[in-house]
Design a protein around this nucleic acid. Structure first.
Lengths: 317, 317
DNA sequence: AGAAAATGTGAGTAATTGCCCATGAGCGAA
DNA sequence: TTCGCTCATGGGCAATTACTCACATTTTCT
C-alpha cells in the first residue's frame, strides 16, 4: 500500500508480523525480509501487536501445586469452581494471571452452544479479564451487568465492564442504567420499578454464571477512589463491621450482608442465588485478603479465581 | 509423552517457568533467581514449555486466519511466496483485494535499491493490480512483458499491462511487440529472431520475479473474449486436456505444458525458471479454481496471491 | 552389581532482540 | 509558503536468549 499513515493498515501489518513471530516462529530478521522492511520496523510491529493485545498467550497446564491448592480451597469453602494461577512475587500488578485465567473461564462459558445468561460485576480486575477476551460471536447468550454503570457525578463509570465486553463478544447485553449507590431506599425502589430495569433484575435471577470482583474497604478502596463513597461514610461502615463488598453489596467478616442503611441504597442486581448460579470471584493480593476470606466464609461466592499466594493465605486463615 | 514420575514435576516446572516468561513477562534471569536454578536451566524449562505445547499463542485479528491458510498453502505446494487476503463474500469482483495485495508486493520489489528484472504477464487481474501502484522512480530496475501486446486484429491489446505500468513506474521497460499467438511455429521463430525480441527473451531468463495472471479456459475465457482463439479451437484444446493458461502457455490438469500444436504458436517469453525466479500468480474465484490448482500442482508458479475462499478450495482439493 | 545409555547441568559463544538517538517526511498553524 | 511539531525509520549498541560442548548424575538393562 502507498504511503498513507493509516492506522488500520498498520495494525494489519502488526498482526501479520506478530503472527509470523509468535505462531510461525520466524525471527524478526526473516519477517523484515519477507515484509520488505527493516529489522527495526519488524521489531516495532511485533511489539505493537503485543501492546495492542492482538497476541494472547495462555498457559495450558495444570500446575500440580496450584491444583492442589485449588482442591483444598474447594473443600474448605465448598466451591464449585476454583482456579489458582502461579504467583509472580516480583510483580506488583493486581491483575496479572487472574485476568488471563478469568478470560479463559469466561470464554469457556461463552463457547457453550446452548444459550446461557452470563452476569458480570465491575472493577479493575474484571476489566482486565474482559480485555483478554478474543472476539466472539455468541448470539445465543445474554450478558448482563449486575451493577449500574452511572458514576456519582452522572457520567458513565470507568470500570463498568459490560460495554468493553460488548465490543469483543457479539451477544445481547443488558447494562444497568443506574448508579451503584442511590440516595435512599425509596429512590432505589422507584428506579427498580422501571420496566427496562425490571427485565435486567429478572435476568439476574436466571443467570447461569456470574463473574464478580471483590472490593476491599478502606480509604483507598475502589468505591472511594471512584467517588461513590466519601471517607467518612467508609469509616462508619468499617466501624459497623463491613469487611468488603461485591457489586456494592457490603458484607461483614462472616460474609453476611450488612443490615445497615447502606445496602438499602445499593441499586445493583441482587447477587444471583448460589444454589443455582455459579458466582465466581476474581481477586488476588494482600489488600483483598479480608474481603475475599469473608466472602468465602459466608458463601457469597461459590467460585474463585486467585493466585497461589492468596490461596495459601485463605487456607491458613 | 513419557509417564515417568520425574518428568511430571519437570513439566510442572516448565509450565511455571513458561508462565513467568510469557504471561508475567519476566526475563529468564529473574525466573532463574525466583525458582532457584541456573539461567540455563530456566531457558531449558521455557523452551520445554514451548516444545510441549504448554504455551498457546493466539493472534486475535482477522488477518490471522489468512496467514494460517497461507502457511498451509506454502507447505502443500512448496511456494516461496504466499499472500492470502480476506474474502469479501459480498463482492462479485474478481480482483478486489488481490489487486491491492499484488500492488503491495510489486511495490515491495520495486523499492529494493539493487537493480532487479521484473516481469509481468497480462490479464484483467494484473491490470487491476498495476492500477493500484503509486508513482515511483526506479531507474535501477528493468521491467519486461512476458507476453505480446498485439491483438489478433493488429491493434494493441487491452490487457497488456506493461504500458500502464510504465506510466506509474519510471524504469526501463521492455514490451513484446508481437501477438500472443501467431499462425505457425515458423512464424514464431522468425519473430523471435528479431534483435529487439531477442533481448527481451534474454531478459526473461534473468528475471528476478514475475507477476502473472492465471487464465481459465472455456467459452468465455479471456483468450476467447479478446479474440485470440475462436470457440472451436478452445473446445478442441479442452478435449486435449487443457486446464488453463499462463501468458498463453497452455497446461493440463497436472500443470504440464501441453505438447500439442497450440503452445508452438505461443509467442510469449517462456516462463522464467522457477529454480531462480519467483513466479507469482494472481487469481481468485471459482472460475479459476481448476486452472490455479493445475498450475500449482505442476509448479508452474511458485508464488501465489489469492483470497481466503480460493485458498480453502486449493487446500481441500 | 556393573556397564551402558539417557538425561540434566553449567560454561562459553553466537544469534537474536530491545532500546536510544539522529534523521527526514508529513501535517497543521502562522 | 515556511516554521515547528510529531512520528516513523534505520543504524548502532547493549541486553537477552539460544545453541553447542563437555561433564556429572540418574536410569536401565543384563
Amino acid at each position: 500500500m502507498a504511503k498513507r499513515p493509516e492506522t488500520g493498515g498498520r495494525l494489519d501489518d502488526a498482526a501479520r508480523a506478530g503472527w509470523l513471530y509468535y505462531v510461525a516462529g520466524r525471527t524478526q530478521d526473516e519477517i523484515a525480509t519477507a515484509m520488505g522492511i527493516s529489522r527495526q520496523s519488524a521489531q516495532r510491529l511485533v511489539s505493537l501487536a503485543v501492546a495492542e493485545r492482538l497476541i494472547k498467550v495462555r498457559l495450558d497446564h495444570p500446575i500440580a501445586e496450584c491444583l492442589e491448592l485449588g482442591e483444598q480451597l474447594r473443600r474448605k469453602f465448598g466451591l464449585v469452581h476454583v482456579d489458582v494461577v502461579p504467583a509472580d512475587p516480583g510483580s506488583s500488578s493486581t491483575t496479572i494471571g487472574i485476568a488471563e485465567a478469568g478470560a479463559a473461564e469466561i470464554e469457556r462459558w461463552l463457547k457453550k452452544p446452548e444459550p446461557i445468561v452470563l452476569a458480570v460485576g465491575t472493577g479493575r480486575t474484571l476489566k482486565a479479564a474482559i480485555d483478554q477476551l478474543p472476539a466472539m460471536e455468541c448470539p445465543q447468550h445474554r450478558i448482563l451487568s449486575l451493577t449500574g454503570n452511572i458514576g456519582p457525578d452522572g457520567s458513565a463509570a470507568y470500570y463498568n465492564v459490560i460495554f468493553s465486553m460488548a465490543d469483543a463478544v457479539k451477544a445481547r447485553h443488558f447494562p444497568m442504567p443506574l448508579p451503584v449507590l442511590v440516595s435512599s431506599p425509596e429512590e432505589r425502589d422507584l428506579l427498580h420499578r422501571q420496566s427496562l430495569v425490571q427485565s435486567t433484575l429478572q435476568l439476574g435471577r436466571e443467570a447461569d454464571v456470574a463473574f464478580v470482583g471483590i472490593g476491599e474497604l478502606g480509604a483507598d478502596a475502589p468505591l472511594c477512589l471512584d467517588g461513590f463513597l466519601d471517607p467518612q461514610e467508609m469509616a462508619r461502615l468499617m466501624e459497623e463491621g463491613a469487611a468488603g463488598e461485591i457489586c456494592g453489596w457490603m458484607f461483614d467478616r462472616e460474609g453476611r450482608l450488612l443490615e445497615g442503611s447502606i445496602n438499602e441504597r445499593v441499586a445493583s442486581v441482587p447477587l444471583p442465588p448460589r444454589e443455582t448460579t455459579t458466582v465466581i470471584g476474581l481477586a488476588k493480593g494482600k489488600r483483598k485478603y479480608l474481603a475475599l476470606l469473608s466472602a468465602l466464609r459466608g458463601g457469597m461466592i461459590n467460585g474463585l479465581i486467585t493466585d497461589e499466594t492468596t490461596a495459601r493465605y485463605l487456607l491458613s486463615a
